[in-house]
């Protein structure tokens, strides 16, 4: 059965509609839209924190959103083992809440990068990429200023040892200087994924390609077995 999903909108989110479009396109079920000031989540299988510039990126990217009223419910949802996906600003929120380790720092080149990169599916040992081909390399857009993934040496080692690096920038396309070319990581349990690239922006031929579809088909369990 395809999954039911919800997308949380914060003041300053700007990819929530793109995300909802990609989710509905893949699952055939319209996602529920949730406002950041809500305190409960609907009965869904997957919650998505979308990209954008929540609260104008004030203080630190994702820092204020991570303390929004809805986030206690998101934390409970993750603790129950249900799926939480954070893309771009959503990834920054997940590290700020502590649901994922590390931090997203200013890009090494200091500039905002908005371009296409090549992404490698580096791990399929989680609930999102388990239907994808390990080692596959695909096109994916990025658009961020703070995507430079950082964590201390022990944390990086644990992420690598536990096969929790879901995505890496491939073929010298790392746009931000992240350690080990990290583009996306999961929590230990594999039910929380944060990633900087925007697969939701490459699911329709009108967007220039459909490379991102395989990710959504895998995450939503609609992939042909």
């Amino acid at each position: 059965m395809p999954m039911k999903s919800a997308v949380i909108t914060f003041p300053g989110s700007n990819r929530e509609r793109d995300m909802m479009y990609a989710l509905e396109l893949t699952s055939g079920i319209a996602p529920v839209s949730v406002w950041h000031a809500d305190t409960t989540l609907p009965d869904v299988d997957l919650v998505v924190l979308p990209g954008g510039f929540s609260y104008g990126d004030y203080l630190r990217s994702g820092a204020i959103a991570a303390r929004a009223p809805i986030m206690d419910a998101v934390r409970d949802f993750a603790e129950k083992g249900r799926l939480v996906l954070g893309v771009c600003n959503g990834f920054q929120m997940l590290t700020e809440t502590g649901l994922l380790p590390g931090a997203l720092m200013r890009n090494a080149g200091l500039t905002f990068v908005c371009r296409e990169v090549m992404l490698e599916t580096a791990s399929t040992a989680n609930r999102f990429t388990d239907g994808m081909a390990r080692g596959a390399v695909w096109r994916c857009p990025v658009a961020h200023h703070d995507g430079n993934y950082f964590a201390d040496t022990d944390t990086i080692q644990a992420l690598e040892d536990e096969d929790r690096v879901a995505f890496r920038y491939a073929r010298g396309t790392n746009p931000n200087g992240s350690i080990n070319d990290i583009a996306g990581i999961t929590n230990k349990r594999g039910n929380v994924l944060g990633m900087m690239p925007h697969p939701e922006n490459l699911v329709d031929p009108l967007q220039g390609g459909i490379d991102g579809r395989a990710f959504f088909e895998s995450a939503l369990g609609t992939v042909a077995a």
Binding site: L59, P101, F150, A151
Partner: peptide, 9 residues
Amino acid sequence: EKLLANTVI
């Protein structure tokens, strides 16, 4: 601890 600093970095 809760907001002003991100003690990871």
